[in-house]
Design a protein around this nucleic acid. Structure first.
Lengths: 213, 213
DNA sequence: CCGCATCCCATGTGATACTG
DNA sequence: CAGTATCACATGGGATGCGG
């Protein structure tokens, strides 16, 4: 038996052999947001050793999960269709792990990619479908995100456009998403600062994105 | 920063810290079938070192994913409610990994637990809902499973009872579930041997359990 | 500077042996 | 049966080097 295999003939076992190594699913998560260059991946994964990143990229490529694609003089890594099929896995893991997130610690960072996928994990299409289309601009630490909700569809990116509500927050945002902190309390206590738009829209945001059990 | 952490404040990252270690999700998978004793877990996980199993059980217990429960003079391990919430994750991983399963190799084994969860991964409730309730008895290698489908509900276990179709198969069964091998061809080529009941029911089985894209 | 490759050491893993 | 102890080894982490 080859090394690092589990010796079992089963779907979960095979999945763990392909994406169970350390850092692998985090690379997939970031690539689910969009194609990325080597350096962008390294920047988004705090303190991943460069040799490990290089090794994982090769393994994931060999497994048919991602590919190197030339893009106007530089190489980017992008998921293959099979790799993109990991999205339900990553979203389910994100929703589950979200509930076990303690209070943020000083050394923990939030990247645009991690926040984007966390929002996708927390998105409730069935709730959003009954609400008016809304565009949010959210600043988390250093990450700036545009969030457009239109019926059951969600788009998180960095494009410009009109914004109904702009707000800034630190890493306390997870208490808003977990339902632990009510929107008006979040504003009152300064956890969320409304920059533009009516602050009532934060309530709409909190009901659209929620991971409560 | 504590060792083995990813230094990121995100749901997926937190999930990987809790269940990302080697063997952890396979232990969870087996416990999703039901509470198990230490030796049962060891038997179901081919060649897991006993020290690793002991270490993982402690870590998963500390994380609130499983607990040790005394059951009539012996100790069993069982998932907590939070641990059971990993079921969507495990099923999604199983469905994804199933598509990348090559042909079974000699040293790869199938356990009742792995087969049970693979069947759950492949189960299509919306298809089953429109079919008559059916009970199957399936022998895979050494594993013997009772599979009861009743509308959109699935129950895999070892209970007795009337059986509509009993069949035996080796590890080629995954080609049936992936749609690669038609039911009648599976019987004709000996991949599946019908022991009792009408062989047409294997077609119903194949449409009820399927992981094709 | 970006995209890795190399080196070294700490740690986790795996096989085996052992104990209550 | 249910783990613990030990030890060789593979892998991960961090720093550094280096070619394009």
């Amino acid at each position: 038996m080859a090394p690092r295999e589990y010796g079992q003939f089963s779907g979960i076992t095979r999945a763990m052999e392909l994406v169970g190594e350390r850092w692998a699913l985090l690379i997939v998560r970031d690539l689910l947001v969009g194609p990325r260059r080597y350096g962008e991946l390294a920047a988004g994964l705090p303190r991943i050793p460069s040799n490990i990143l290089a090794a994982r990229l090769k393994e994931l490529q060999a497994a048919g999960i991602l590919r190197r694609a030339p893009r106007s003089r530089v190489v980017v890594y992008e998921l293959t269709p099979y790799g993109r099929e990991l999205e339900p896995v990553v979203l389910a893991l994100g929703a589950w792990g979200f509930k076990a997130m303690g209070d943020p610690r000083e050394e923990q960072i939030i990247t645009p990619e991690s926040m984007t996928m966390d929002l996708r994990s927390a998105f409730r299409p069935e709730v959003a479908a009954s609400l008016p289309a809304t565009a949010y601009a959210a600043r988390l630490d250093s990450a700036e995100l545009r969030i457009r909700v239109d019926g059951p569809a969600l788009d998180v990116g960095r494009e410009d456009g009109p914004v109904d509500l702009a707000f800034a927050t630190g890493r306390g945002i997870h208490r808003l998403l977990s339902g632990e902190l009510a929107p008006d309390r979040a504003i009152a206590t300064g956890v969320v600062e409304v920059l533009r738009g009516h602050s009532d829209l934060l309530g709409r945001f909190a009901s659209t994105f929620n991971v409560a059990a």
